[in-house]
């Protein structure tokens, strides 16, 4: 096998200027189950798919409250998310303590971005292995940010991270206008669940056990719906299983639907969850520079 010499640490550039350790950290996000975030004028909804390690095990928490006006969804290494959410909570509390005002979502997000960047430029630390969606409502309105281990943060109208999240992004792009103009929070949540549903593989469907829903916005503190409380939202969906799987019973779940935007990558990811070891070096062909966020 081709041996990549440039991927042993996060302080070595490849000859094309890439940082493989950071890119591998981005891969770790895709190992996690999906999370979707979307915004209307005054609200942010975060929804996520929870996994349990075994039938009798509990489901891994995917949504974390930071403050009354901020919450996050995670995909990837949950322990890393705990570190970051703790940090965010401390920042939120200091803002209250020092300025007597809730922290601005943007500033909160930048604080973890700068923290994450440090781990990509110094030896001995590893980049964080988790992606976050941060939803917040403050004086400047409703905001949704995506945080990556590279230390990049970008503001989106709608975003999705985790396994097979491309399908959710496709849904969000197609329904963007409708989502942005959602009058009711209910419509926004339903759009969120629809997007999340598109990430499902064929053997599962959304249930009140594996689905988490949260909302924050104008006159609405951050609130998470789990278990029985989620049922009210699931009841509003026309179906709780993936449309692609409903339309066609073929075993091969991805190539039936002619959705060209669900890339081959997604199929690979599926395999990745079971077989691929993260140390496998991606090809060094140019053009897929994931850390370069403006390219």
């Amino acid at each position: 096998m081709f041996r990549n010499n440039y991927d042993n640490d996060s302080v070595t550039y490849s000859p094309t200027g890439r940082l493989f350790q950071v890119e591998y950290a981005l891969e770790a996000i895709k190992q996690g189950s999906a999370a979707v975030g979307l915004t209307s004028k005054n609200h942010v909804v975060l929804v996520a798919l929870k996994r349990n390690a075994e039938e009798l095990g509990s489901f891994q928490k995917k949504l974390i409250k930071i403050d009354d006006h901020i919450g996050i969804a995670l995909a990837g290494l949950a322990p890393d998310a705990r570190v970051l959410s703790n940090y965010l909570r401390r920042q939120a509390m200091s803002s209250k303590m020092i300025f007597d005002k809730p922290i601005q979502t943007y500033k909160a997000v930048l604080s973890i971005a700068d923290k994450a960047q440090e781990n990509t430029q110094t030896y001995g630390a590893r980049p964080y292995g988790v992606g976050l969606l941060i939803g917040g409502y403050d004086e400047t309105g409703a905001h949704l940010f995506e945080f990556q281990p590279s230390g990049s943060v970008l503001e989106y109208y709608g975003a999705a991270i985790g396994a097979r999240s491309q399908a959710a992004r496709t849904y969000l792009e197609r329904n963007l206008d409708e989502i942005r103009n959602s009058e009711s929070t209910e419509a926004l949540i339903v759009h969120g669940l629809n997007a999340l549903r598109d990430t499902l593989s064929q053997d599962i469907e959304l249930t009140n056990k594996n689905t988490s829903v949260s909302i924050v916005g104008k006159d609405q503190e951050f609130v998470v719906y789990d278990d029985e409380d989620v049922q009210q939202w699931l009841d509003k969906l026309d179906s709780v299983s993936n449309a692609r799987n409903r339309d066609d019973d073929d075993d091969n779940n991805n190539n039936n639907n002619n959705d060209e935007e669900v890339k081959d990558e997604e199929v690979k990811e599926e395999n990745a969850e079971t077989t691929e070891s993260a140390a496998d070096a991606p090809d060094t062909t140019e053009g897929d520079d994931r850390m370069e966020t403006d390219e």
Partner: peptide
Amino acid sequence: DLSNSVFSPDGRNFQVEYAMKAVENGG
């Protein structure tokens, strides 16, 4: 070219040159 702060026999610091590559694709 595998480690920062190392000169090659002809006096170049490759990691710095590679860093420049990261720039050359940006906006």
